[in-house]
Simulated scan of single mutants.
Amino acid sequence: MTELLGPSGLPYRPCAGVVLINPAGLVFAGRRIDNPGPAWQMPQGGIDPGETPRDAALRELVEETGVTTELVDVVAETPDWVTYDLPPELLGKVWKGRYGGQKQKWFAMRFLGPDEAVRIATAHPEFDRWQWMRAADVVESIVPFKRDVYARVLGEFRKILA
């Protein structure tokens, strides 16, 4: 099987993401610590060798939000991989220059716990703030080069969010 390459000629980094939905139908978003401007995103991260996308999504959820697996119900996943390409100014600077973007599997998860169970002050924090947002606001709050991916993913899960 050949590796999927982006327009840069570099492969896509395998990644898993979580659309964490509270009982009111709002989506978790965290404000990234490492971005110079305000950039909010949903939990996501790389898939380790030998790890399934679902297992990676659950691991990333715990690592980035402190929300444990017994506090979520996985209700859906994107049927296909979703890709995005890094903008030219980031090529060669992130992921040690090995990837030109990401291919992502996304999972919709219902949050079953209290807000106090969200603890972003983790061992390796990625967020300095978090909040529940309407799906459209999450799309508007992400860095511009990821907006199409977020719109597509949240569109895939629109029935769950309704």
Rank of each mutant, 00 (worst) to 15 (best):
W130G: 02
K93Q: 13
L61Y: 00
A56I: 13
E51T: 10
C15S: 15
V82Y: 01
S141C: 02
W132S: 05
I160N: 01
Q44Y: 13
P14K: 11
V74A: 00
N22W: 13
W106R: 07
F111S: 05
R31Y: 08
V118Y: 07
R129P: 04
D148N: 09
F145H: 15
F127E: 04
G46P: 10
G9Q: 09
A136T: 08
G66F: 01
T65W: 02
Q131V: 01
L20Y: 08
R98V: 02
P79W: 08
M133N: 04
F28K: 09
V139C: 01
F111I: 07
F28H: 13
R129I: 05
G50H: 12
M109T: 02
D48E: 12
V143N: 10
P7R: 12
P43K: 00
F107R: 04
R158C: 03
L71W: 04
R134T: 13
D137R: 02
V153A: 12
E63M: 09
V62T: 00
K159H: 10
R147Y: 00
T68D: 03
Y150H: 02
N35A: 14
D48M: 11
W132H: 05
T78A: 13
I142C: 01
P7H: 06
W81A: 11
K146F: 04
Y84M: 00
D48H: 09
L86Y: 15
P36C: 06
P144Q: 11
L86C: 14
W81G: 07
T78L: 13
E70V: 04
